[in-house]
Design a binder for these strands. Structure first.
Lengths: 333, 333
DNA sequence: ACCACTTATACTAATATTGAGCATAATGTG
DNA sequence: CACATTATGCTCAATATTAGTATAAGTGGT
């Protein structure tokens, strides 16, 4: 065993996982790496292959970049450098999400006696040109979480499928206390029985489904092949959990910080802005109130130019007033 | 060089830094390790010593625990186990703050060709018995950030000292653009010229002072010995930055999640609860509105018992309804 | 030119929330 | 018993939010 390539016992290797988000045609997209065969290109780092590829070698994964202690001054600069290098996109906004150090996250690393610690990042980009990342494509994020999109009313999969399965899971609890606990958590996360739906609980919902063995990532989930796409497309390792963290965080953040603008082109109409917010939050907004809110916050100013391709009356084009960025502005929705 | 003890080139070592918060006599306290001499006790891990001790060996530091990949299943369980072991306190709440991978954070690690990555955690404890951590004591957190405590009105140090120094720094900008930038950021963070004070910008304020060479941690800060205690007590390495992150995060969090209760005893009066919130946010609240808010949220229920040591009319004792914990409850203040 | 259709934008009424304060209740103390 | 002290109930105005109606300004078709 060579110490410089193969980690010694009890050591740690750091990887950077990026949830790279963009809006394409008013849909929320996330950059995912797809692997359709065992064939691996040799260009990637050993680490990249190890993490991006799940055991069964079939799932989509979040793009992954290694952290080189000797090359990168900080973790964030490491992330920025490899993302910008590989995607040619300028990153408007980067936020550290969470650092996962879970045992068993990557069995191959474990076997070598090392632990893979992955730092998850959320990156927002405006430009969506094709990337240089191997096999990377933009995917609608609701493909992985179909129950999170309420823009066309309550998702059918909820009533027809998930809620019944969860009720069954509640019934199957070992004892009364456990049953009550399951019921209450389901109420809160999935808005059962009059409890209102909370768009920020993306991670909590995913984890409840995981606990109830209703997602394919769970090893003991029933009829795996079937469930894999039924309850959203599965991802490699715990990448769907990281994505859920990102979506929940972003949904929370747009309510009190002006991060939406990082996803917008330089100028935009108020309806375009609204559609983006709706795409992220997965719900519809009242148009007149939305524009009143936006205008009151003073985050935006008219450019004087007019957008005529609206399909109706032409709209004013606005620009984000980047000057006020630092202030803890509320963009409540 | 032995690969199993001495990290090889380009490798990474992970440390867990904990901001452990408790309320003692209505003051916000944080557990800090004090080192008054060069003498090191042999009981600590090499890593602990390396990180807890600054170069000049004089500053206070946040307690530090190593992450053992072979022993700890997750990062959080690693943190919980060493904190609970060393403090004998039960941790009510743990939140990951941020993962710092800054170059030059620990020169000794760097010299050995390794990078220290530290994961910062915020931990809230109720019980405040003496701890088993070497030299650890509870310190009022406003000792490190005297400008953050507005409970007795605007802190004198601000008007008398910090604001003038910042104005001077703004004046000294190289050009007009830089000057305007400095002025705007100072307005936003320190509430200059009518801009309202924002209690959450703890980190941003500290970093502005750092940039203006007004804190002792900055190597080129003017007359170091003097400034060290004038603008708050300095800490080792970037620990004051981690503490600022923790305070800002906690101040933000109590506004929309019921985390205060993790710092409360099992039963408490509404005034006690208010005092704790005030201690954390560093500002005073309107009493009647506070209780109206708390009661409306339904996070709390009367126990029926009565507290008679109030100094006036006896008060009802309340208990936190832990059942509603998961719900994204708003405890707006 | 006129129509149907689409989107933009102004304005309004009803309701809820918030901020500030008054009034009263219940205790201990000199 | 006056008085200081804290608890708690209640009001009132200012402000914000929700859910509309009404009107403006374009498009394309006939």
């Amino acid at each position: 065993m060579n110490a410089s390539t193969e980690p010694a016992n009890g050591q740690v290797v750091i990887g950077l996982n990026a949830v790279i988000v963009a809006i394409i045609e008013e849909q929320p997209k996330v950059l995912v790496v797809q692997h359709t065969s065992e064939t691996l290109t040799a260009q990637h780092e050993t680490l990249t292959e190890r993490t991006a590829l799940p055991h069964n070698n079939r799932h989509e994964a979040l793009p992954f970049g290694p952290f080189y202690p000797l090359k990168h001054r900080t973790l964030e600069s490491g992330l920025r450098s490899w993302v910008e290098e590989q995607t040619d996109h300028e990153i408007g906004y980067v936020e550290q999400l969470y650092t996962f150090g879970n045992e068993g996250r990557d069995p191959r690393e474990e076997a070598a006696g090392a632990r893979l610690v992955s730092v998850g990042y959320l990156a927002l980009v405006q430009d969506t040109a094709p990337t240089a990342i191997e096999n990377a494509v933009w995917q609608d994020w609701y493909r992985f979480f179909p129950w999170e999109d309420w823009r066309d009313g309550p998702p059918t999969i909820l009533e027809s499928d998930i809620i019944p399965a969860l009720r069954k899971w509640i019934e199957q609890a070992e004892n009364n206390i456990e049953q009550k606990d399951r019921y209450e958590r389901t109420c809160i996360t999935f808005g059962l029985d009059d409890t209102p739906w909370n768009d920020e609980l993306v991670l909590e919902r995913y984890e409840l489904l995981y606990e109830a063995s209703l997602v394919a990532e769970r090893q003991d989930s029933l009829d795996k092949g079937d469930i894999s796409n039924q309850h959203g497309t599965a991802m490699a390792l715990d990448h769907r959990r990281i994505l859920a963290t990102a979506i929940g965080r972003l949904r929370g953040k747009i309510k009190y910080r002006p991060v939406v603008f990082e996803l917008m082109p330089p100028t935009f109409t108020l309806l375009q802005l609204q559609k983006v917010v709706e795409a992220l939050s997965g719900s519809l907004l009242h148009k007149q109130n939305f524009r009143r809110l936006i205008e009151k916050k003073g985050l935006v100013e008219a450019t004087g130019k007019i957008e005529t391709q609206t399909g109706g009356r032409p709209a004013n084009q606005f620009r984000f007033r980047r000057e006020v960025l630092m202030e803890r502005q509320t963009l409540g929705i």
